[in-house]
């Protein structure tokens, strides 16, 4: 049984049917990519996972719990972390503060008025944040202000923040969009390392075929709001349905 199960999801905006009967099953411990041409409904589908949109019908189950209609912070606390298209970090804080916030969030939950203790006295959280920065190879930049980092480093920082929460599922929304080739390859290596070391389940939404075929163990192809193929990468490339979807056979 999958950790993330999407069953019969439909979503329309006015007369436009963005998603029609989408079924998807992300197995625990795997890297699952969702690809598709522009306008296929990838972002709409992602927004259904994270509480931004509620589908007209269908279910989205994570660990046998419905993700529909609950707040982003509740989804996160269930164990879903999200990496954004443009890295979302606390840009006016230091790299270290960014990560330790994620550590506190994991420990304290949605709200805790712990104004009596000082951040400096929380040694275990310091250790954890440091370890996360070592894992993503950012420890020497820990005192830099996050906004001064390069795009690739911002992505690393965001990954460190997500990993600090020990997520069961990592959602990645075009993690290499707008990156230079070197940064893209770095990110791929980083994701591979993380996957190898921790075995975190990842669901990646991506345009870049290079990224998808380097990482994914399973690929779902989305076209015109529905999953047309779900298969292993080696079978996807030669699939005539996929070629048709990408090369515009739909017209």
């Amino acid at each position: 049984m999958g950790i993330l199960e999407v069953k019969g999801v439909n979503k329309s905006f006015g007369g436009l049917r963005a998603l029609s009967d989408v079924n998807l099953n992300v197995e625990e411990g795997t890297v699952h990519a969702i690809i598709g041409p522009n306008g296929a409904g990838k972002s709409t589908l992602l927004n259904c996972f994270i509480g931004k949109l509620i589908p007209d019908s269908g279910t989205v189950l994570f660990d046998n719990q419905s993700l529909l209609g609950i707040q982003p912070h509740e989804i996160n606390q269930l164990g879903v972390s999200r990496v954004f298209q443009t890295p979302e970090i606390f840009s006016d804080l230091t790299v270290f503060e960014n990560v330790i916030i994620a550590c506190f969030a994991k420990r304290d939950g949605a709200f805790e008025l712990n104004a009596i203790v000082s951040v400096a006295s929380q040694k275990d959280m310091h250790e954890k944040a440091k370890q996360m920065l070592i894992d993503v190879n950012m420890i020497d930049k820990r005192n830099e202000i996050a906004s001064s980092l390069s795009r690739g480093d911002k992505r690393r920082l965001e990954m460190a923040m997500c990993l600090a929460q020990d997520p069961k599922l990592l959602l990645l929304d075009e993690p290499t969009a707008g990156m230079a080739r070197a940064d893209t390859n770095n990110t791929i290596d980083l994701l591979k390392e993380i996957q190898a070391a921790r075995g975190i389940t990842m669901a990646i939404i991506e345009h870049d075929m290079h990224v998808v075929f380097s990482l994914a163990e399973k690929i779902s192809v989305l076209a015109q709001g529905t999953v047309i193929v779900e298969d292993k990468p080696e079978n996807i490339k030669g699939n005539p349905k996929v070629q048709e979807a990408y090369l515009g056979g739909a017209h």
Partner: peptide, 9 residues
């Protein structure tokens, strides 16, 4: 936005 997706209200 990041704070909410970090599990904090």
């Amino acid at each position: 936005q990041r704070l909410n997706y970090t599990g904090i209200q």
